[in-house]
Design a protein around this nucleic acid. Sequence first.
DNA 1: CCTCCACCGGAACGTGAGGAGT
DNA 2: ACTCCTCACGTTCCGGTGGAGG
Length: 413
Amino acid sequence: MGDLKDLFRGLLKDTPHIFMDRNVFSSGYTPASLPHRDAQITTLASILVKALRGDAPSNVLMYGKTGTGKTAVARYVGEELEKMGVETNVTCSVLYINCELVDTQYRLLAQLAKAFDCEVPFTGWPTDHVYEEFKKAIDSKEQVVIIILDEVDNLVIKSDDALYNITRINGVLKNAKVSLIGISNDLNFTDYLDPRVKSSLGEEELIFPPYDALQIQDILYQRAKNGFNEGVLADDVIPMCAAYAAQEHGDARRALDLLRVSAELAERAKLIQVAGMHVRMAQDKIESDRIIEVIRTLPVQSKLVLYSVIVLLDNGSRVSRTGEVYSIYKQLCNNIDTDILTQRRITDLISELDMLGIINAIVVNKGRYGRTKEISLSVPVQSIRNVLTDEQRLTSLSEFKPVNMQVSLAAAY
DNA sequence: CCTCCACCGGAACGTGAGGAGT
DNA sequence: ACTCCTCACGTTCCGGTGGAGG
């Protein structure tokens, strides 16, 4: 036990210093420069420069798939604008709000008010009261407020009132000016909008095309220079990360994750250099983490269906049919005292699992023996069995033995 | 060529939770 | 505090189907 004191000391000493600054790879990090986004940066800056003259810039909509640098560009230009505002003595405030978390009008207003030191309780006030408070707070002095709404789709899907109110706020303010920057990865999201909001929000539009493999490489090299110590990356590491990410529609964030995970794997193996092998391992790890996360958050009923497939697999059938799955599923439900859903619903659950890429379900015709779905697992069994029995209500199922297996025996012939 | 299996999948409807309006 | 609306989740009902076997 006395050695425990040295536990961390030992680990500290042993750990090779691959990372210089882990922060460089976190999602909130804004790098000092953004390769291959000069055009977007210049355009955005030329729109926002009006703020430095004390006017409200046009509202901007930014489109692009995930990992194309939308958020980074918006934050980067925002920071520069604030800096410039200090120099030129114009108060410019840039607020960044992620609408994935802030997805109702109330929460949005509360969040905005809070940014101006205005106390709003989490709940309780009528929405228009919060709106008034927020107006009062920003109108207290002359300033230009730029609100960046990331993932703005989330705010709109429920109702576009929030956007409607904010786009019209300039009409009622005396001192302050407000502009919006909406960020969306859905090109068609304006279809959901009220036409008035649409024309007001989309005064300017910026498109972010996906990066190609070479561009991703540049980004990675730049981050690696700030994030890793020198010489820890083998030559092929970054090209590999870029190639993998480029295959999946040029997602730079994905490439950065890949690079980070590769380095973490190498670090955990106590190596001093990251090799191509680690990139491959990282690719697998990210994918299996994704699958596990998807399965873990599945509703209980879907888990039961999935478990039924596994049970059938354990009993020797490589593919299973809907009828078999359903009969096992019913047994499982009785076993843990859960409501049994109808077969119609199970059909849908099976289709959902198929779409998530966890199972493979194809419709086949067996002539006289009917028409059904042939279901097989498209991920390794051992990786998901434990995830399923981790769920509190399903733990007892690890002991489960199916009765009445002649159905699947018959299927063997 | 016809039948008929064993399920597919569309349509309409019921229900409860939760948010918005008043 | 109340009703109204919407949405996710499920059920009921049912027409549809490709081909093995007669």
